[in-house]
């Protein structure tokens, strides 16, 4: 598994086309780490020119802001924006909708404007472009009974409601 850091690539004079923002769960939670590995496996398989920040990545500040600590949020956000702008990052993919929301919708007003996409959108793009070739041996194809192949989709509600409700609820009045 190959996941170069942005620092390594920059030292070699290379600049990746996309940054994979791993996030706290993807870095530290044992279950979510397996998702990170699965996503990196896909990135390697399709030959995406990507990098991670590694130890230079910090919390986006989303939990702090949602809990009402605007000062801590801005401190964490500014640190990240300085790192991202320093590497001249243009495009970011993340496997976490919370990081996605903060990077996409809340960093621009602090000077961090990037093209941010969620990994679900990114994977759909890869399928549409024909870059992902699926085998016949997937977890659904090998089980043919209609009941056992059922899957349900639990979409993160954050996509739909966070911007509308929580944002207004928890933002300091001065920033509403």
């Amino acid at each position: 598994m190959n996941a170069p850091t942005l620092a390594e690539l920059t030292a070699q004079g290379k600049s990746p086309e996309i940054l994979f923002w791993v996030g706290c769960a993807g870095s530290f939670d044992d279950r979510a780490k397996r998702v990170t590995k699965a996503f990196v496996k896909i990135l390697n398989a399709v030959g995406t020119n990507f990098a991670v920040l590694g130890t230079e990545e910090s919390c986006t500040g989303d939990p702090a802001r949602r809990a009402g600590n605007e000062f801590l949020f801005q401190m964490q956000a500014m640190t990240n924006i300085q790192v991202l702008n320093g590497y001249q990052v243009k495009k970011i993919v993340t496997a976490c909708p919370h990081c996605f929301n903060t990077l996409k919708n809340e960093y621009p007003e602090l000077g961090g404007t990037y093209e941010v996409i969620h990994h679900s959108t990114f994977l759909q793009q890869l399928i549409n472009e024909g870059k992902i070739k699926l085998t016949e041996e997937g977890s659904f194809k090998e089980r043919k009974s209609p009941i056992t192949t059922r899957a349900i989709w639990v979409g993160p509600i954050i996509f739909m409601k966070l911007r509308v409700k929580c944002y207004r609820l928890w933002m300091p009045t001065s920033l509403k």
């Binding site: 996030g23 979510a32 496997a95 976490c96 679900s120 009941i147 059922r150 979409g155 954050i158």
Partner: peptide, 13 residues
């Protein structure tokens, strides 16, 4: 369903 598909580490937990 036999598989619950999620797209968020916190929904996963």
């Amino acid at each position: 369903a036999k598989t619950i598909a999620v797209a968020c580490p916190f929904c996963m937990t």
